[in-house]
Nucleic acid binder design. Structure first.
Lengths: 115, 115
DNA sequence: ATTAATACATAGAATTATGATGTATAGAAT
DNA sequence: ATTCTATACATCATAATTCTATGTATTAAT
């Protein structure tokens, strides 16, 4: 795993982005998806994930429906309108930051670029 | 400026990397270099930079020589042997993290890659 | 029957960047 | 002359975020 500090500021964007792609997900599903897409290199801790979801909800960027599956309940989250806007902004900022960081760290290379 | 959280974990790597490239720099010089390379998009705050340098020194990753310039004094920092090792590790980790993050966020694209 | 996986959550600890503030020198502008 | 800006360092309280540890409970697998 990576230094936990590197993850900072990216967790919220990751969640918003996944919800934008998938439409609706519950917490544990996000955990699994991130683990899968990252080749097991990013393992979200539940002590990080659930508070992050709670904060997104508090900030009205996501809403959820509770769904019972047997006797267990899942909270299916989806983006609010505000959340959609924030997702776009967040991804934009993150892309730019990564591009800028590349310029600082590797000034002699063809730097980071995504379309 | 970017969300300050995004910078977390990257400031130390940036400093070590610049010192590896430039050999020796003083604090304000690092501030200027980062500002220049980032097209003014990363403006280090002295409340971040000097404590970061102090921590690197405490951790024996850098050493410095005080040089008087007129009546002002500069602290010229350079990597210790330990610092050189950490610089390599830190850059490696950061590159990998950025690549992994790209995979999670943009699974359908030709992802981030630097040689 | 026990373990691992699923599914949520909270509270305290740790880390790190920021804002505010402080000291002081040097050059530029008015 | 004076004022403003840049140079050059530093500390401290605050804010933000993730982690560890802990807790509850259901379900599937061995």
């Amino acid at each position: 795993m990576y230094s936990k500090e590197l993850l900072k500021g990216t967790l919220q964007v990751m969640i918003l982005q996944l919800l934008a792609e998938q439409g609706s997900m519950y917490g544990y599903e996000i955990y699994q998806k991130v683990k899968e897409l990252s080749d097991e290199k990013i393992i979200l801790k539940d002590g990080s994930l659930y508070p992050a979801l709670a904060k997104l909800h508090k900030d009205k960027l996501v809403q959820f429906k509770e769904v019972a599956v047997g006797k267990r309940k899942r909270k299916y989250y989806e983006l609010t309108k505000q959340g959609q806007e924030q997702q776009v902004l967040g991804i934009e900022e993150l892309k730019e930051f990564m591009a800028t960081l590349s310029k600082v760290l590797f000034p002699n290379q063809n730097n980071y670029a995504l379309n």
